[in-house]
Design a protein around this nucleic acid. Structure first.
Lengths: 224, 224
DNA sequence: ACCCGTTTGGTGACCAAGTCACACACGCCT
DNA sequence: AGGCGTGTGTGACTTGGTCACCAAACGGGT
């Protein structure tokens, strides 16, 4: 079957056979190169995307040109923002960008609507994706208000690090990750470096004492 | 008909007759006194609420006991957070509290599910409510990161003021509104008072120069 | 009316974070 | 080598958040 991808999605594995068939026929697998705008304020996108490979970064740009990263959509997750895009509710400033090359299942509006109508499993999948994003946003708001930037930076470094403990990002990029200023990142990283928790070189932060960073994060009630 | 409330909801007025009937039969009008917990982290609420009268405040409490107001649900709107509650996705810390006496339509899960399956109008209503809340949260995040507190306070005062230009709220309550500290509100209001934009008395802020506050808000790219 | 506990608001000192205006360092290109 | 563009470091300053108080206003009791 062409619908073998369905089992990549936790909430969809329980779909009955007829629905699986409908989903397989009514959808399409698409590939997008890194940097593609998956959805954007103006552009009305008429498909729901289920990510098979890669990640999509959802960020918000403000009038002043500054931006924050709201959350990331990873393989196995769906990009429900684009369904909200379908409804084109008001103007929101969030846009989605392919952070890597991306392979995804595109479900056009008509198929989506039919599946929501017919399948309770699919409904649950969609609604739980929505609440997932909601809780992500709640978490972000909580962090923005209550967490210190050193803790947030430590946490983000840990989650961005590759298997070697390296994070390939400029200070400016990290500032955008956290919605803060580049200078703040520079100063905080200098302090981390002074304590020998990380080593820096142009465009790269290498974690040298993962333990210490984890301790910092945990000490302020965070996970990871 | 007992379903005359349906037309209070913008997105539902186009519902076909049979669906209206099903909605009327399968739902219930409930009243809750001020202060009622409409939904809360632990408590699994199995109904979707459509507000007929009053407002529900949705706020988030953090481990440290501090809290922020995420958004308000007003008459004519639906409280989709509680549908997310239905799915009990992970633990989120947001809870909803009746800010006034509230009259609402309670739609139990089974009715909700049936309507989503049968009616595309109802589906659109639900999804657009979700994206409405999403955009509210986006706006909040934007404000938290990019707006000064004096601007945010001015804006909030304007939207909380009654017809006489009075805001009945303590400094601590206003701090919670904006996710900042009481002292910051006190200082900012003192400054507003010094400029004779507002007058203060215990538990009340009276706007004396609405114009000036509006100018401040607009000068920083805000509306209202 | 008076007392007393609670709520609300005010203040100063201090720390954390964001802003502004630079200067400097590293690659890379011709 | 000289000249970009991009990435990083720094000091001075403003804004916002925290802490530790105090004082004034209020709300019952008796």
């Amino acid at each position: 079957m062409t619908t073998s991808w369905i089992d990549s999605f936790f909430g969809l594995s329980r779909l009955p056979l007829d629905i699986r068939a409908e989903l397989g026929v009514g959808s399409e697998i698409v590939s997008m190169p890194i940097g593609t705008k998956v959805f954007a304020p103006g552009q009305s996108n008429d498909t729901l995307l289920l990510l098979l490979e890669g990640t999509v970064r959802v960020q918000q740009r403000s009038e002043t040109g500054k931006e924050v990263i709201l959350y990331r959509v990873n393989a196995g997750e769906s990009c429900v923002m684009s369904t909200a895009c379908m409804l084109a509710y008001e103007d929101y400033s969030a846009d989605g960008i392919a952070e890597t090359d991306v392979k995804a299942v595109a479900i056009p509006r008509s198929t989506f609507d039919g599946l929501v109508a017919k399948s309770s499993v699919f409904r649950e999948f969609v609604f739980s994706a929505y609440s997932r994003r909601m809780t992500d946003l709640f978490k972000l708001i909580d962090d923005l208000i209550f967490q210190r930037v050193d803790v947030r930076l430590a946490s983000r470094l840990l989650s961005l690090a590759d298997t070697l403990g390296e994070v390939r990002a400029t200070h400016a990029a990290l500032a955008t990750e956290l919605g803060t200023a580049r200078e703040v990142i520079s100063r905080t990283l200098s302090e981390f470096q002074r304590r020998e928790w990380v080593a820096q070189s142009r465009g790269v932060v290498r974690i040298t004492q993962r333990e210490a960073l984890e301790r910092l994060v945990r000490s302020s009630g965070g996970e990871v």
